[in-house]
Simulated assay, not measured.
Amino acid sequence: MIDDHNHNLRGIMFRCVSVICFAIMAAAMKWASEAHVTAIEMLFVRSTIGLPIVVGWLLIGPGIGIIRTKRPKAHLIRSMIGMSGILMTFQGLILLPLAEVTTIGFSAPIFATILSALILKEKVGGHRWTAVLFGFLGVAIVVRPGGGGEALSQFGVIAALLGAVGTAGVTITIRQLGGTEQPGTIVFWFFVSCAVVSGAAMPFYGHLRAPETYAVMCIAGFAGAAAQILMTMSLKAAPVSVVAPFDYGQIIWASLLGWLFWSTTPTLNTLAGAGLIVFAGLYTAWRESRKRRVTVAATPPLE
């Protein structure tokens, strides 16, 4: 019992630091966007900086041997979905305030519920559909003009929503991959795919930048890789239901960094919408956890 408690605390600590790193990455990319850095350039720097860090983590941790896989096609599909989602999120960061794009991004569990019903044919009950409706209401409030702020860029909103759909798609594919693949394997091939695809696109979308712009993007790359590793470590230390609620702290950190660097504060719409989105996400996570407990309890013991 004490060991479980210690593991949970360790998992929560890893998750909280991961959330801070994700917020730093987003803020750094937002800063770089003011120098007209494109989403492709952001992805290239994030993946090329992050890949050596991931390799180093594998060498000192689970071992580089885990990158062997018998499911390359599944990794390719997961990577393509993840890349599309990240590019849309970066485009949202270019066009929207930091707090707003972060808040919209947390609609991903809503889309994951819908995709799990459509693709995995999972049975979704009335409680979870109600949470989906609350989440969509929260998104609608965030993107609606008014509430003490200027109207948001429509393309930016669409990009941020597509980023959330991409994150939801990744959640679904990782569920399918997780049965046979190690977390480190999934992370490694994702970074490799991002580096190859964005590298191939750089001759068309890349430009020479000022040294300080590259420095900021490198900070984003280091923070993104650290966040990915810490998130994986949190899931190894504690159950998803224990650590996932702490993800929403990223909204707080994004708001704080937005105020610190751009003197922007979340509008009333953003705060109200964030409340509904967080409620929907936490309720969905609770229902998922409860369903798993019931399933385990109903499973007969092995003879």
Results as ranks from 00 to 15, higher is better:
M42V: 13
I20E: 00
F279R: 02
L115G: 03
G224N: 08
R287W: 02
P211V: 05
G206Y: 09
E122N: 11
T265N: 05
S33A: 15
A108F: 12
L268M: 00
D3R: 12
A237G: 03
L95I: 13
P145T: 01
T185F: 08
I119T: 03
L257K: 06
I67H: 04
L260R: 11
W253N: 03
V143W: 03
V170L: 11
V192F: 00
E122K: 14
L58V: 04
E288Q: 10
L9C: 07
A254W: 06
I104W: 07
L87D: 08
R15I: 00
A26Q: 15
A210C: 07
S289T: 07
G85W: 09
T213N: 03
V240C: 07
R15H: 02
T284D: 06
M25A: 15
T113N: 06
R144F: 13
F222Q: 04
L96A: 09
N6H: 15
A298V: 05
A274T: 03
T284W: 07
Y205M: 14
W259D: 07
S193A: 13
N6W: 14
P72I: 08
G148W: 08
M25V: 14
V278F: 01
R128E: 14
R287E: 05
I158E: 12
C218K: 00
M217L: 13
G56S: 10
W189G: 04
V37I: 15
V132K: 00
S84V: 14
A151F: 11
P266L: 06
W253G: 01
L43F: 14
T185P: 06
V243H: 02
V187L: 12
K236S: 10
A280M: 04
V124A: 11
G275R: 00
E181N: 09
G179W: 10
P62H: 11
A23V: 12
T264I: 05
C218F: 10
A227N: 00
G148R: 08
G169F: 06
A297P: 00
I110E: 01
G224S: 11
L260G: 05
P52S: 07
P266G: 01
P211K: 01
A160N: 08
I104F: 06
E288N: 07
L268S: 04
F111P: 02
W189N: 04
A108Y: 09
G65F: 13
R10H: 06
A117T: 03
A23W: 12
G135E: 09
F261D: 02
I114D: 02
T270N: 01
F44T: 13
G125N: 12
T185E: 01
G163C: 11
K73V: 13
W189I: 02
I67F: 09
P109I: 07
I141S: 02
Q250D: 05
I174D: 00
F204C: 13
V17Q: 00
G169R: 00
I172R: 08
T130C: 14
A237T: 02
A26I: 14
I174F: 07
A26P: 15
R15F: 03
H7T: 11
E288P: 08
L95M: 14
K123P: 14
T113I: 09
F106W: 05
